[in-house]
Structure formats: C-alpha cells, structure tokens
C-alpha cells in the first residue's frame, strides 16, 4: 500500500522535500513507517526515534515532534502502533504556536 509523509515548516528543509510517498506492507504501523523512513529512505540524521516518539535534535534541546495520521494525533490513536491505511497521510510537525 502507498502512504504519503508530509513534513511541515522547517522539517521541509530537513527532509529537502514537501512530501515523501512510501510503499509499505499492508497494515504497517507508524513505527514501521519510521523504520522504512530511516533505512530505505534515509531519514535525516537529526530525526531519531526515542522514548516512543519521534525526536528532533539540532543544537536545541531534543524535542518531540507531532505526528498526525489523517489529521488525528497518534497520541489519541495507538501511538507508534497506530495502523496505517492505504492512502494514509502522515503529517510531521515541529512544536509551534501563534495565531
């Protein structure tokens, strides 16, 4: 199945692209997606999986990133074990505020 990973804000610079389309086995979960991102796609080094979340480090204190699957925060789903569907859109966000 195909899923789309969309990094936002400065994660776009980190990834160098606005979206990554990945081919995953049926019923893969977020953890497996991150693994594929890491091994096959070569996820940027500044991104790391630790303590059950995706971490960004770059001169700042390491911070957890927000992962949304189809608009839902994985915290409200099954965390890294959230299962993905075909066509799922996974959005990655750094912390932000404003408005």
């Amino acid at each position: 199945m195909e899923v789309v990973v969309k990094p936002y804000l400065f994660l776009r610079q980190v990834f160098g692209v606005n979206k990554v389309v990945l081919d995953l086995p049926e019923e893969a979960n977020v953890q497996e997606l991150l693994q594929v991102l890491r091994c096959d796609y070569g996820m940027p080094e500044k991104l790391n999986v630790a303590d059950g979340q995706l971490i960004f480090m770059d001169g700042y204190k390491p911070v957890g990133l927000t992962i949304l699957v189809n608009g839902y925060n994985i915290k409200q789903l099954q965390g890294l074990y959230t299962t993905l569907n075909d066509g799922a859109v996974i959005s990655l966000f750094p912390p932000a505020a404003g408005g």
């Binding site: 804000l9 400065f10 960004f56 700042y60 911070v63 750094p94 912390p95 932000a96 505020a97 404003g98």
Partner: peptide
C-alpha cells in the same frame, strides 16, 4: 532554547 521560539 525553546523550539517554539525558533518556529515563530
């Protein structure tokens, strides 16, 4: 140090 600051 806050990432929030960096984003804003």
């Amino acid at each position: 140090e806050a990432m929030l600051k960096m984003a804003m």
